[in-house]
């Protein structure tokens, strides 16, 4: 069965989706990630979707689910690198990404995760570029 590889990176879990998503694959990712969050006591999950050209309501919901489930297990989720066309399409579709943090790229996503987890500067965290 096809699987998306998940990397452990300190307290974080790192996923870069490089293949075309389909429902089963996304559902597997959800299950695998949540299991690994528990196994490694991870504090943050970073999912890079810069190579994903299509996200529909189902795959979008999986991302939201991952964020919500991780949150219950005390881990924050950042989705990074969403393509412009994908972002506009999701808005048009009517999907809301509650509970998911977004960042432009993996680097900024990592910073965001760190600031979320260690509560670094509470006022400006999302926008910080430092």
């Amino acid at each position: 069965m096809e699987k998306i590889p998940i990397l452990k990176f300190g307290e974080f879990l790192l996923v870069t989706i490089q293949v075309d998503l389909y429902d089963q694959l996304a559902e597997n990712l959800e299950a695998d990630l949540i299991n690994l969050v528990r196994k490694h006591h991870s504090r943050g999950v970073l999912i890079d979707i810069s190579a994903v050209s299509i996200i529909d309501s189902f795959m979008g919901r999986i991302l939201v689910n991952i964020a919500k489930m991780s949150k219950i297990m005390d881990a924050e989720t950042v989705v990074t690198g969403m393509q412009p066309a994908v972002a506009i399409t999701l808005i048009e579709l009517g999907l809301h990404f509650e509970g998911v943090y977004n960042a432009l790229n993996i680097e900024k996503g990592m910073e965001l995760l760190r600031s979320k987890i260690y509560n670094l500067d509470e006022d400006h965290d999302i926008y910080s570029s430092e």
Binding site: M82, A87, I91, F97, Y101, L104, N105, Y127
Partner: peptide, 12 residues
């Protein structure tokens, strides 16, 4: 919509 899409990308 424009603001929402910008936020999805991770910008304000």
């Amino acid at each position: 919509k424009t603001v929402s899409a910008t936020r999805l990308m991770g910008a304000e």
